[in-house]
Nucleic acid binder design. Structure first.
Length: 834
RNA sequence: GCCGAGGUGGCGGAACCGGUAGACGCGAAGGUCUCAAAAACCUUUGCCCUUGCGGGCGUGAGGGUUCGAGUCCCUCCCUCGGCACCA
């Protein structure tokens, strides 16, 4: 063939050609019909990128290459692998970049997407370009808005007041990461909290299920751990502390107002010597006495002036003020003072605590600072009711003391008894609490999908009718956040002024846009259904392709993205829109690439730019090297010179299949090499399946080294299987070599993964290490499976072994078949020698 | 502080279930080819002693279990990642 006249390995030319052929032949894309009928569907998902202006960075390529290797491997084993990619292009990153660069995001994003697309093709990913997604495309976010409406209609979306970071100088809302040590990252003005009405999705309704499903999904252990910690279930009780009315003394009467607290330690309620409310707690005004009001208001103002991050710093000393009010401890029936302090958070539990300084470190600190009483109510072994407390005793072990009728009970016994007894007076109930908060999706920003709600004075919040979707984000030239503190969309009067869909009266659109995490919470559902303009996802297609078989991505999304996607899927499942609860059967977190021991960052100037490397070595070499750096799930250290190893390997492989002079020999396989080949097939197959790419590559290198040892020329049947084994890593080269070996069509069509044959992998001769008292003194070659006595006999003839056994009495022999022989020996007693 | 992962040659990293530590690759040294260089190929390469044969030491530190420990147990040190006043 004339086109194969050139025998040198030219990665750039080969890669360009095969990428064009894949496009032309539709090698990697599915038609709608193929999607409908695929017999062994395998959905191979990776986290779609945010298309930055800088282009793909190595971290992206590392993640995508690793996922692509997995997808190509599955495909070669005969699966119909669907491997889509898309662009997560809404959000504050794009918006901020656009602001800085003075470009409109509607112009910026398409350019970035085009550049990303070029780079993604160039790295040789098996992407289905017929099924991509761009979250900023109205054809996509129409369905993001639809999703919001479904959640709204099922009572899973509601408006609540919530604090935001507010920069009083820029007059704008800031995200937590835009706050640097309590100040606005742009102007340095101290940030304060403001309360505004925002939309929340009620993920907390699903907290229990989201937690309880975790043991049943095949995810990286670290990711499961992170989710568990994030949701965090606490079992305990809600206990009511009735407010004591009147200036002094207790008025026990009916109809008293009570303040509920949440506690995990109801057994310590007799030690609750004071109460603390969060400064924002709605009961603060009620309990505060006139005498204390000035001080209380000042403290609340001070708390509000703190940004949300600083508010939760642990290191600072605890502060608080007394409100002047009292509540009755329902167990002791004694009045306890009510304080406010910022160490109590409004967002958790009831926003109020019963403080048990004897048995809680935080309360202990606070009590010491403000000289509040500390009472011991649990005594550990060797302690009694009067043993002084130097520090809080937090363990639920010991016996109750100073607790009236409950004295002597263990903490767990007391927990049940106390809750039951208080329950009879309607003052307690068992309760499970979650750390997980509802998901705030409101963004007072421009670059996102408008939340499809219309506010009407008479009807309240009315959903935009589904047939009116999408609510198109209008092109606004001046999209800067401004001094109103609300979304820039609130300046576009002819956009937001609309009739109420329900009553027809004048109404206004919601001007907040939604969080990007909502865009990405369902994109995997859209991919296989992008052929449909009239529905977000098609039932038949979804049944066939989902849930996702493998999802590979970074652990930085272990919590938010993955949790939101699970929540949305679970909610859709409850609405009977999908027939599964969990979207991702398998999730694997990949590691991170560092460079020569240091984290890559723009500021250090040690970022790897992929394009020049691909130009110099080719995408195949780059992919292979990235996968060779270290275990995929652990990451690796990019050393600039290291790429020459994999590059040389590909050259040698090429040279072995396409000899520079002469023809590829056709003779039979060398028997020794055949054993090694089959052991290599097994190792590579097992290791790729477990994402142990680095050792899979090492095994292939070892095999090729053996096939070429001492300048040997391998024959066709010795190298052909290696072309298949390398294909997931170096797809372009594999295609080219496959064709040069005389095959028609793509190597990825037709289940070409080599078959492992156990019979052909057995070794006839093995080397057995011989030890004397655990130290290796020699090795012997024996037939595989040789028995103990034969190995012992042979081992004794080894000079060095014999020398070490001289004058020794062998007391035992350990034999590990085919591996090791160990003589356990001691110096002979003189009397026993001949 | 809590949780998780980890500490192995000059470097990145291997080592199944406790069984020859250092696979594979980089780097380094020597060699072949070349006018020369690059590339390619071959050999050597954990440290120490020894001309050689061989011997001693060696997987963060210290103990333990075992015929045998990178691997199991205990104590401690360090690095990285996550969570962090969640009652």
């Amino acid at each position: 063939m004339a086109k194969h006249a050139d025998r040198t390995y030219d990665p750039v030319a080969i890669e360009r050609e095969w990428q064009a052929r894949w496009d032309r032949d539709g090698t990697n894309s599915f038609t709608l019909d193929e999607l409908r009928t695929a017999e062994r569907p395998f959905f191979n998902l990776m986290m779609f990128p945010y298309p930055s202006a800088e282009g793909l960075h190595v971290g992206n390529i590392y993640a995508f290459a690793g996922a692509d290797v997995h997808g190509r491997f599955k495909r070669m084993q005969g699966h119909d692998v669907f491997e889509p990619i898309g662009f997560d292009a809404f959000g504050i990153h794009s918006e901020n970049f656009a602001l800085k660069a003075g470009v409109h995001p509607m112009d910026l994003i398409p350019a970035n997407v085009a550049n990303f697309t070029r780079q993604l093709r160039r790295m040789g990913g098996m992407f289905d370009w017929a099924h991509t997604v761009d979250t900023t495309d109205a054809e996509y976010y129409k369905w993001t808005q639809w999703l919001f409406l479904q959640l709204f209609k099922h009572g899973l979306a509601e408006q609540k007041e919530a604090p935001v970071n507010w920069c009083p100088s820029d007059m704008t809302v800031l995200a937590n990461e835009q706050v640097v040590v309590g100040a606005c990252e742009r102007c340095g003005t101290p940030v304060e909290q403001r309360f505004i009405r925002q939309w929340f999705l009620k993920i907390t309704d699903y907290a229990g299920r989201l937690l309880d499903n975790l043991p049943h999904i095949d995810w990286s252990e670290t990711t499961l751990k992170a989710q568990r910690a994030w949701i965090r279930r606490s079992r305990g009780a809600r206990i009511s502390f009735p407010v004591v009315t009147g200036a002094d003394g207790i008025e026990e009467g009916a109809e008293q107002i009570a303040i509920p607290v949440f506690t995990t330690r109801p057994d310590t309620v007799f030690g609750a010597t004071y109460m603390v409310l969060a400064p924002e707690h709605p009961m603060v005004d009620t309990v505060t006495t006139d005498a204390r009001r000035t001080e209380v208001d000042a403290y609340r103002a001070r708390t509000r002036a703190m940004d949300l991050v600083a508010r939760q710093k642990v290191e600072k000393n605890k502060t608080g003020v007394f409100t002047g009010g009292y509540c009755m401890n329902p167990a002791t029936r004694e009045p306890v003072p009510v304080w406010i302090a910022d160490y109590v958070l409004m967002g958790y539990g009831t926003g109020a605590i019963m403080a048990v300084p004897g048995h809680d470190e935080r309360d202990f600190d606070f009590a010491n600072t403000y000289e509040l009483p500390i009472v011991r109510v649990v005594a550990a072994e060797g302690e009694d009711a009067d043993t002084p407390l130097d520090i809080a005793y937090e363990y639920p072990r010991g016996r109750l003391v100073n607790s009236g009728p409950y004295d002597g009970l263990s903490p767990s016994e007391a927990t049940g008894a106390i809750v039951d007894d208080l329950a009879t007076r309607d003052l307690a109930e068992s309760r499970v609490n979650y750390r997980l908060h509802d998901w705030c999706i409101s963004r007072q920003r421009y670059w996102g999908p408008p939340i499809p709600i219309i506010h009407c004075d008479s009807c309240g919040p009315v959903p935009v009718p589904e047939e009116d979707l999408p609510v198109v984000l209008p092109r606004v030239e001046d999209f800067r956040p401004d001094d109103t503190g609300i979304s820039p969309l609130a300046r576009v009067r002819d956009w937001y002024e609309v009739p109420c869909p329900s009553c027809g009266r004048d109404a206004t659109r919601e001007t907040d846009v939604s969080d990007t995490f909502l865009d990405s919470a369902w994109y995997f559902l859209r991919y296989p259904s992008t052929d449909f303009g009239d529905r977000p996802f098609d039932d038949d297609i979804t049944r066939r392709w989902l849930p996702v078989d493998t999802y590979i991505g970074g652990n930085e999304h272990a919590v938010l993205h993955l949790l939101y996607a699970r929540f949305v899927t679970m909610a859709l499942s409850d609405m009977d829109r999908v027939d599964f609860e969990e979207p991702f059967k398998q999730f694997r977190a990949h590691g991170l690439i560092i460079r020569e021991g240091a984290k890559m960052s723009k500021s250090k100037g040690n970022v790897i730019v992929p394009d020049p490397i691909i130009e110099q070595y080719g995408a195949d070499t780059f992919r292979l090297y990235l996968m060779f750096l270290g275990p995929f799930m652990a990451g690796g250290d990019y050393q600039d010179q290291g790429i020459s190893g994999p590059h040389g390997f590909l050259h040698r492989l090429w040279e072995s299949v396409v000899p520079q002079k002469g023809e590829l020999p056709e003779h039979a396989i060398d028997p020794k090499l055949e054993q090694k080949l089959h052991r290599t097939i097994k190792r590579v197959t097992d290791q790729i399946a477990n994402l142990r790419y680095n050792t899979a590559i090492a095994a292939m290198m070892e095999y090729l080294n053996a096939a070429r040892a001492g300048g040997r020329t391998p024959c066709r049947v010795e190298v052909e299987p290696l072309v298949c084994l390398i294909a997931p890593f170096a797809p372009h080269m594999a295609e080219e070599l496959w064709e040069r070996l005389g095959h028609e069509g793509s190597i990825f069509d037709g289940a070409n993964w080599p078959q492992f044959d156990a019979d052909k992998a057995v070794e006839e001769e093995v080397r057995v290490a011989v030890q004397v008292n655990g130290k290796v003194r020699g090795t012997v070659s024996v037939p595989a499976g040789a028995d103990r006595d034969a190995v012992i006999a042979l081992a004794r003839t080894e000079d060095n072994v014999a020398r070490h056994l001289k004058g020794m009495e062998v007391r035992g022999v350990i034999h590990v078949p085919d591996r090791l022989l160990n003589f356990v020996a001691a110096r002979e007693a003189v009397s026993s020698t001949l």
